[in-house]
Structures are given as C-alpha cells and as structure tokens.
Design a binder for these strands. Structure first.
Length: 309
DNA sequence: ATGCCTACCTGGGAGC
DNA sequence: TGCTCCCAGGTAGGCA
C-alpha cells in the first residue's frame, strides 16, 4: 500500500506530467471517493473545473495540486489502494474497473489528458481544500519554517525526507524528543502521523527490523541514540524504496497495488512470517497488533520485559 | 491532553 | 465450478 516513497513517486510523476494543465471536466463515478469536501461531489467538480494545476506538493502521505491563482488545492490521499494515473492518447480509452474519479485535462499544447483516481478499496479520497499557513510543523517547536498546508492535512507532522528534519538539524533532535515524550510503544509512535508522517505498517516493520528493535519497546525508556537509530533506519528504508520506485511513473503508471516495485525484492520482515530472518535465520514471527500485523524476528528484536502495547 | 480502539470499505484469494 | 469468508490497513472520531 502506498506509504511515503510511493506517494512521493506519484507526486513527482504529477509534477512532471500535469502541471500547467487545465481542468476541463470532472467525472465522479463514486461519491464516497470525494470525502471531507464540504460541498460534496457536485461542488468538488464545480470548484475544479476551469482551474489550472500549478504545483505538486506532499506532506507525509497526503499530496495536493495547487490551483493557480487561488488559495485552494486538489488534495488527495491514496489510502491503501489508491492510484493517480495520467492518461493520454489511446490511454484515455482505458477505464479501470476501479476508476472512482476522472479529471479531464487540457495540456498547454492543447492535448486531451486525464488524471484518473483509481482505488479498489476506497480508503483513499479526493477533495478541494483551502491552503492555510501553519505556525510551525516542527516537533519540539524548533525553527520558524512555516508552511502552507491544506487545512485537512494541517495536523500531519513533517516526514523523514523533509529537509527540515534532516539529521543534525534542530528539527531532527526535536523529533527524537517528541518520540521519547510519548507514553506508548515505538511502533505506535512511528505510525502516528502527528509525530512523524509517511510511515505505515510496512516501513514501520522494516525500520524496526533494521534497527533490531522490538515494536513494543516503550518510547519513554529508549535513549536518544536508540530513537535516532530507528528514525535513521526508517529514513534509509524509505529512501531505498524511493530509489527503486522512482522510475515507475515514467510509463504514466504505478503498479497495480500502488507499490513501487520495492516490495517484491527487499522486504526483510513485513509479510515474511515463517521465512528465515535474513540476519540470523530465525523464522520471522507475526503478531496481532492494533488489529493488524507486526512482523519481527524473535531473535534480533527481543520483546521487552515490560512491553508497551 | 493523551493514548487507544473501532468503523469505514472492497474484492482477491483461500478454503470447502 | 461456485460459493462463503477472511484479510489487508490509513484515518477520523470518539471514548476513557
């Protein structure tokens, strides 16, 4: 499912293919896919039609296209199965079985195009949302780097690929402290998008495996160095996935599952129940966690004596 | 305020 | 072959 690397791949593809296009039509095929939009699907279409898409931005797993000359943006979240596909030429005849919204576009060259929102499981959604200035998205209150974010995403923290959270910056140190202030387990903290964004179940498990840390380790009992290590592991895993997936949008198409091709080859823990740990050979274990799964190596990632859930 | 849980939603695939 | 059921999980909102 799309987490930060996949969403960034989509954002990059949109930046290269749809900026400067004008919205000519909006076909909402499933009302549920237009959510958190005050006026509903009809208003969504009305607000988009005639607008020029002028910038492709992202915060965590939210991404948006700003509408030129307004304070509004087309905001999207891919949920767990969403895709944004650019259609051109004969591709316009392709109607995916899970097409939820088609946005008809006209390129600066006069070509007909479409931006298709395809989403099998319908956890994703689109809206038109006002951009609002945020006081400071940095954990720990460091710095003064304001940002204009869609109101619906204003509560989302910066992600580990955000320059403001680069290693050695006040932002990164503030994030470490913010994690340690939590009274919960490390995986819950990693998944909390208001602490650090972009990490989902897959990259959380992969980061914890790489850092050789159990998911239930209480954050408050971790040292700064341990928290920094986990965050670095998460950053590395996501950067590697981004490097592998970054070209898939050249074909105007992201894999059917919204993934970047990373998953086939490089997963060490997630989904690997019963498979040998690549580090020590112990079979990877699957636990129920937050009504989902947590995959870990029982040897490399030893459960703490007093685990946090 | 903070932490945790549940509902939302679909259809591919496993099991019979 | 055809049917049923399970499973995936990001997020908002509500609860304690």
């Amino acid at each position: 499912m799309p987490e930060l690397p996949e969403v960034e791949t989509v954002r990059d593809g949109l930046a290269r293919h749809v900026l400067g296009t004008v919205v000519e039509s909006v076909d909402v095929r499933r009302d549920y896919s237009v959510r958190r939009h005050a006026g509903g699907p009809m208003d969504f279409a009305a607000q988009l039609t005639g607008q020029t898409l002028s910038e492709a931005a992202r915060r965590g797993k939210y991404l948006w296209l700003t509408l030129d000359g307004t304070d509004d943006a087309l905001l999207g979240h891919l949920g767990m199965s969403g895709q944004l596909l650019v259609r051109t030429g004969a591709g316009l005849d392709v109607i995916s079985p899970h097409l939820r919204v088609r946005i008809g576009l006209r390129s600066p060259d006069g070509d007909a195009m479409a931006l298709d929102f395809v989403d099998q499981r319908t956890f994703g959604h689109l809206s038109v949302c006002e951009l609002v200035p945020t006081p400071d998205g940095l954990p720990g209150g460091a710095g003064s780097q304001r940002a204009a974010l869609p109101g619906a995403a204003a509560h989302i923290a910066r992600d580990l690929l955000d320059p403001a959270l680069a290693q050695g910056t006040p932002g990164r140190a503030g994030l470490v402290d913010a994690v340690r202030r939590r009274r919960t387990g490390i995986k819950r903290a990693l998944l909390d998008q208001s602490v650090v964004s972009g990490i989902g179940n897959i990259y959380a498990d992969e980061a914890l495996w790489r850092a050789a840390m159990h998911y239930a380790r209480p954050t408050a009992a971790l040292t700064r160095a341990q928290v920094a290590q986990v965050l670095l592991a998460a950053e590395q895993v996501m950067r590697e996935a981004l490097a592998q997936g970054g070209t898939s949008f050249d074909a105007l198409y992201v894999n059917v599952n919204g993934a970047s091709g990373y998953f086939d080859r490089s997963l060490n823990a997630y989904g690997q129940e019963g498979q040998p740990c690549p580090r020590c050979g112990t079979p990877i274990r699957r636990d129920e966690f937050m009504n989902r799964s947590a995959f870990s190596c029982p040897t490399c990632q030893r459960r703490p004596r007093t685990p946090s859930r």
